[in-house]
Amino acid sequence: MDPFVVLVLCLSCLLLLSIWRQSSGRGKLPPGPTPLPVIGNILQIDIKDVSKSLTNLSKIYGPVFTLYFGLERMVVLHGYEVVKEALIDLGEEFSGRGHFPLAERANRGFGIVFSNGKRWKEIRRFSLMTLRNFGMGKRSIEDRVQEEARCLVEELRKTKASPCDPTFILGCAPCNVICSIIFQKRFDYKDQQFLNLMEKLNENIRIVSTPWIQICNNFPTIIDYFPGTHNKLLKNLAFMESDILEKVKEHQESMDINNPRDFIDCFLIKMEKEKQNQQSEFTIENLVITAADLLGAGTETTSTTLRYALLLLLKHPEVTAKVQEEIERVIGRNRSPCMQDRGHMPYTDAVVHEVQRYIDLIPTSLPHAVTCDVKFRNYLIPKGTTILTSLTSVLHDNKEFPNPEMFDPRHFLDEGGNFKKSNYFMPFSAGKRICVGEGLARMELFLFLTFILQNFNLKSLIDPKDLDTTPVVNGFASVPPFYQLCFIPV
């Protein structure tokens, strides 16, 4: 058959498939802009700032609406009420993970971030239990974070109060905490193996944040037939998995079943207990991918939040002064901060919360999916439909947070200066898919920041009023603009 005829037939089939998918069930789905064949609503979305586009569309179609990214149908949730109703009140029905062709290629359905069903539930339950087990290797997770915080302070001392970009050092600290939990080992910041790991993690975040990856996920045929950065992403992930597998083999040879040292040991012990169960989800494949998931999810998000926190503290020296006064009063100079201190430091706690609220790190979270046909607000959402959640619409709700575009710790303080919780605080998402490392991340943010401010004054290279804190939105995360500062020993 003539190649031209084959091409026309293929394009015609794709067009018909697109029209059929977009028209099927439209009477039951939430409203939304009319999609174009094949490309859907992509032309109506700013790929570099999806969150802003969703906010604009919500003003037209309401808090629940339908979009098509290519052939992929998505239902968008915008605003606290619908997000709570879906992710919390109907948590089980909305607990699936959205379709990610690239991740599915890399992870093969294993791990904790992109798995679904029984596998996801069992691996998540085990990971939560293990991360909360403060007795691994007779050292609590808090001990590990405190140790890394001391190392971080010593690295900052080496800058000798000269101007520096904190990106690298602030990236090393949370990565080392995860390494300590998974591998029972922290690395020197100049260790070549550690630097290679950091390089792969950072490069992957840069790649994932590009519009090209959005295109690959919406048109998965590209993955096999086109060159691009997605190939580098898959190569980096394969490198990390190979490295983790080597460490798993080392653990198998040296493990003491009665004295687990780290996450890998705990997983291997669980595998041993379930070795007679042919349906067990505790396999080497799941261990390797879960460890890679924890490394990827637990490094860049925390380091970016820390980097943004220091920029905001530079911009608002009056806030920094209040935090340091609270540190001096509650902790002093002669001991290290600990998590028990947080309950006695409402202002510092409010500042950490406000940093996370203000920066809105992951504006749309990772997409969910419905696990069955769901009736939601008089609409029928078919099983498997991807759910896109606007966390921006919750964290920047102007009824809950007056002047949401302003950095103001009073958003989390009552009139008496006591810490005030808010149900709208969802930087880790909400419901059954809430970030498994939430507790660890909150511990790291509090301890790293208090250790830094206990030991250093922060000095800006320019007038604080002239510092730009506008986030650089890159399609996946909101990151701070480049800046330098000086760490002046107190």
Rank of each mutant, 00 (worst) to 15 (best):
P166K: 01
K421A: 14
F69L: 13
F110H: 12
M345R: 00
M136R: 14
T348L: 06
K275Q: 15
H99Q: 13
L413Q: 05
N398V: 13
N423P: 10
H251L: 01
E438F: 06
M271R: 11
S51P: 12
H230Y: 08
P174E: 08
P337H: 01
Q193M: 13
K121V: 09
E92Y: 08
G135L: 14
S393Y: 01
V76E: 00
F110N: 11
R139G: 12
Q192M: 11
F94V: 03
L170A: 07
I244P: 01
L268I: 08
T301E: 04
S95K: 09
R261F: 01
R329E: 10
N217C: 15
L287G: 04
I269E: 09
C164L: 12
E81Y: 05
F425P: 02
K383P: 01
E241F: 06
L268M: 06
R329A: 12
A297N: 14
E300Q: 12
T364E: 06
G111H: 04
G439Q: 13
T283I: 07
F282D: 02
I284A: 08
R73W: 02
Q252M: 09
K465Y: 11
T159A: 09
K420G: 03
N204A: 07
I222T: 08
K247N: 09
E93I: 13
K190W: 10
L485C: 15
F114Q: 09
P166I: 04
A238R: 06
A161C: 13
I244D: 01
R150F: 14
E326S: 01
Y68W: 14
P382S: 05
M136F: 14
N41L: 00
K399R: 14
Y358G: 00
L87Q: 04
F428I: 04
S95C: 07
A86P: 02
F376D: 00
I88W: 07
V5H: 15
R342F: 09
N41A: 00
K232F: 06
F476Q: 07
F226Y: 06
E405V: 10
F183D: 03
W120I: 02
N133Y: 09
P464G: 09
R124E: 01
A297Y: 07
M345T: 04
N202Q: 11
L311R: 03
K383E: 06
D463M: 13
